[in-house]
Design a protein around this nucleic acid. Sequence first.
DNA 1: AAAAAAATCTGACACTGTCAGAAAAATCTC
DNA 2: GAGATTTTTCTGACAGTGTCAGATTTTTTT
Lengths: 261, 261
Amino acid sequence: MPADAHTTAAPPSLRQRRRAVATREIVDAAERHLDEHGPAALSLRAVARSLGMTVQALYHYFPNRDALVTVLITKAYDDLADAVQTAVDTAAEETAVPRLVTAAEGYRRWAVDHPERFRLLYGTPLRDYEAPAGGPTTRAMRRMSALFQRELFGGFTAEQLAAADTHALSPSLRTRLEALPADDGSGALPPAATMLLLSAWGHMHGLVVLEVFGHTSFIGGDHQAEIFRVSMHHLLTEIHRRIPVAPPGVRGSGSPRSARG
Amino acid sequence: MPADAHTTAAPPSLRQRRRAVATREIVDAAERHLDEHGPAALSLRAVARSLGMTVQALYHYFPNRDALVTVLITKAYDDLADAVQTAVDTAAEETAVPRLVTAAEGYRRWAVDHPERFRLLYGTPLRDYEAPAGGPTTRAMRRMSALFQRELFGGFTAEQLAAADTHALSPSLRTRLEALPADDGSGALPPAATMLLLSAWGHMHGLVVLEVFGHTSFIGGDHQAEIFRVSMHHLLTEIHRRIPVAPPGVRGSGSPRSARG
DNA sequence: AAAAAAATCTGACACTGTCAGAAAAATCTC
DNA sequence: GAGATTTTTCTGACAGTGTCAGATTTTTTT
């Protein structure tokens, strides 16, 4: 009977299609529930109820709650990366604001617009939830990492990046960072550059986390947006200041984008 | 009649003392449960079980779960601030590493050593938990803010701080930042300095959050410690670079700390 | 139309926080 | 000391959760 079972390329039988749309409906309902009540309150029964079915029916589409949560997490990661991507793409013409700042603001924008989904990704893991090994987390993180890496270091040569002026890194750390798999196709990043990238990631993420989790609410939304933007400008100029100007005869101006300080 | 009767200082009656130790026992048991199973799995029944009593008995010491959680959160905030405080105090003699870096490493150390408590503070809020208004959150945050503020800006004059070279801040933001209540007794911080403090806070917190929540586990614990340390060194030099050297005749050398050795 | 498979149902179990009321224990008052 | 009072703990229950087993209905395939 299962002639083409392994490729599943043949005809999407009517049954399979129904199953597919049912699955999507469940995911959508779960996402709505997530956006309204937060990740901690995610309830299979509530999701089933909102679809007019009983809980047990869900178990024919997902083996357990964790499977559904994993789908939600995967989708949220992709949505976030998409948001950043389109932010850089659509605003590519406005040269007034550096592309890295645009990307960072896309990151913040999505987080502020979808706080519960952001909390699902970067907050306390759900009760008893265990992320699948080799899961979507790392994959999505690499995609985003590659994105920011391009905006942060694009235009610099590998030699310039390797000569970035950081504090001394221990040999142990250097080899560890060199051993990291390259996020992008463009070869591995020099240790100093990886160091700067991680630091920048923490900076951007930290400000967003503080805001989304309400620890800086005393400032007010608009003001937080401005603080974030200024911080990202600072971050960019400071990192670029650590990268030496290109040796004569090599492309790359030293501060390839928007030299404002 | 004793003059201090209204302060409840008179007789710690035996009953009250028993109640006090029972309350502390409950809190301790809850903290152990928290450290072992994480904030999301905190269960009144489990806590009661570990003390050899039934759940309902707990309700005579705490009106509901939220009250117990609030105590845990408050204590965790204090413990974290204490850890940072003692880190700066005990390491005051080692002039090799700047005090701000010591404070930041104290922050990270506590978070790494008590990940579940850190998640309780800075992760997704617990299901149905509502932080009490004017709660301990803001109080503890001010204490920590004052601490870092001192290490970051200590030695600079108000004039220097006010002249810090940040990107242009909107008038709206400047007035908002000026209106913030002073964390310390030492007068309100100039807007530019507050801006830098918030940015630095996000930077430090972000790196710790990424580590504690497992998003940078691919790097390895020791390496993350080094990345954090280097990042904090960078942060310090970059912020100090934005603060102008003191005008002649005024105390404050421009880089007030770490110059002794 | 008959057989097979998929989808959904009812019912149950252990777990959670929380409330009401009864029973036990400790304390205070005479 | 005995009696009254207060504090503490218990039993029992309710609605909520994720998950499993088995029966039942619906849909597709032969």
